[in-house]
Design a protein around this nucleic acid. Structure first.
Lengths: 117, 117
DNA sequence: CCGCATCCGTGAGGATACTG
DNA sequence: CAGTATCCTCACGGATGCGG
């Protein structure tokens, strides 16, 4: 889709696309509990590839939501943490995660009913 | 990715994927203001194709988040509305949208700074 | 008016191998 | 350990046309 107009929907999209990214949601949620190393994130997020973890963290850093701290030891150590603004988004995301956990049985039941016939 | 394990991350994914869908977010947000006809949604959501609007609505209906009411006039009329559970998700989504609107300038500025060099 | 079916291009993202 | 680089797939989604 071409986004050429200044329709409200379009102005929101670039920000929502970040939130809409499933990996971003999971990363933001994890970092809500405190800073994590790269490898900790990779282990915690089942199924994420190295590539996608790096891309996700770069995007979040670019948007000023996550900070990246390199400790030049050997082997190197990199910690990721939420920025203050990132914390506020993480709080929203936490609400979403809670919603998803609470209503997962309902959604699953709805799907079974819908798919029945 | 194959989801074969029962890791918490995987159990959440199927529900979060609904929220992660950018079209779903926009539809849920619109329906938060009250029921809408198919054609109203299509006009309101800049850039959505007929195909994607239909698919999005079907998914939301399957998940028990949106109800579909057909009025068999001629031409037919179809109204979509949030279910009670859909309302609760729409509320979460509204929080996200608000966040996105409030922090759009911050995110835009962060991106410019990041991309500068 | 509301949708489904079909075709088809593109790009997101997985797998793998390699560096500082 | 924390990435980068490359290849390659496949499914997301746009365009179009038809049907109730």
């Amino acid at each position: 889709m071409r986004v050429t107009e200044d329709h409200p929907t379009c102005r929101l999209r670039d920000v929502l696309d970040r939130v809409g990214d499933k990996w971003s949601v999971l990363v933001l949620n994890l970092l809500g509990d405190g800073p994590r190393r790269y490898s900790e994130l990779q282990r915690a997020i089942e199924g994420i590839s190295q590539r996608m973890l790096t891309l996700t963290l770069r995007s979040l850093e670019r948007d000023g939501l996550v900070s990246r701290t390199v400790t030049p030891t050997s082997p190197p150590r990199v910690d990721y943490a939420l920025t203050p603004v990132g914390e506020t988004l993480s709080a929203q995301v936490a609400g979403l995660i809670t919603w998803a956990e609470e209503h997962r049985p309902y959604v699953a039941a709805s799907r079974r009913r819908y798919d029945a016939p």
